[in-house]
């Protein structure tokens, strides 16, 4: 078919354009319909607790993803340094996911539990105090700023709209769960009932009577990569 034929006939050109765009669209969109089949069935994944979720918001606000990835690739060097490669299931409740593509700093997909809360505190105040050769900037305001969690239930609600399975009970007790995770007292039994017994309750920022932004961020970091129970995970031949 000659250019001239196509270019001189608007209907023909419109139809051919539609056909072309449809093919491109189908190839890119149809696989998404099958995405459920590509997410591994694993034990242990749960939606983030309200405190972890706020920490994740701070992670995004401070642009941590600009230098830290959360994606361990299936290569030997990464497996030996960071641990088991990341599974799709591990970011299924992330909106948006934090895989990142830049590693000025190390990958954080399995940072959870690797270092103590105390270390995270010292590191955020001034990274060079604990890692002299680090180029990471300091984030001292995180410990000073009180965490603003007035809208936490709305955040859970918003995520439930895009498919994160928060229950009505989890949404209505979000504030209470957030306080229970960061402060002594509170209702840890309720938090454990709603999010499982593995949830870490702690004074994450070294300030027992205050919920700071650092509390939320450290709670989030300490959870990263620890949810999936790999003892029951049979690596599929993928």
């Amino acid at each position: 078919m000659q250019h001239a034929t196509i270019e001189k006939s608007i209907p023909l050109m419109a139809i051919l354009t539609l056909v072309l765009v449809s093919i491109g669209g189908l190839v890119e969109i149809v696989p998404l319909f099958f995405i459920k089949g590509t997410i591994e069935k694993v034990d242990g994944m749960r939606p983030y607790t309200p405190l972890e979720l706020k920490g994740r918001d701070i992670y995004i606000r401070e642009g941590c993803y600009n230098c830290h990835s959360q994606m361990i690739r299936p290569f030997r060097d990464e497996a030996e340094r960071y641990g088991h490669y990341s599974l799709a299931a591990e970011s299924m409740y992330d909106h948006p996911f934090q895989w990142g593509s830049k590693r000025t700093g190390p990958d954080l997909a399995r940072i959870g539990g690797k270092y103590s809360n105390q270390w995270h505190h010292a590191h955020m105040m001034r990274p060079q105090n604990v890692v002299p050769e680090s180029v990471m900037p300091a984030y001292p305001w995180l410990a000073k700023n009180a965490l603003d969690y007035g809208d936490i239930d709305k955040r859970l609600r918003a995520l439930s709209k895009v498919g994160v399975p928060y229950t009505e009970e989890q949404i209505s007790s979000a504030k209470q769960d957030l306080m229970a995770q960061a402060l002594a007292g509170g209702d840890p039994a309720g938090l454990n009932k709603r999010y499982g017994n593995k949830v870490t309750k702690d004074d994450f920022d070294g300030q027992p009577d205050k919920i700071s932004e650092l509390d939320a961020l450290v709670a989030y970091l300490q959870m990263l990569g620890t949810l999936v129970d790999f003892s029951g995970y049979q690596a599929q031949t993928r």
Binding site: F34, K36, T38, F75, R76, Y85, A235, T237, R238
Partner: peptide, 27 residues
């Protein structure tokens, strides 16, 4: 090679290669 998602699974490719298998072999 593994390529197309089909009905909850995906085409595995005749070589049977997978990244995860390669990693296991390397380790």
């Amino acid at each position: 090679y593994p390529a197309w998602p089909v009905g909850g699974d995906f085409t595995k490719g005749v070589l049977g290669w997978s990244m995860h298998k390669e990693l296991r072999e390397e380790l």
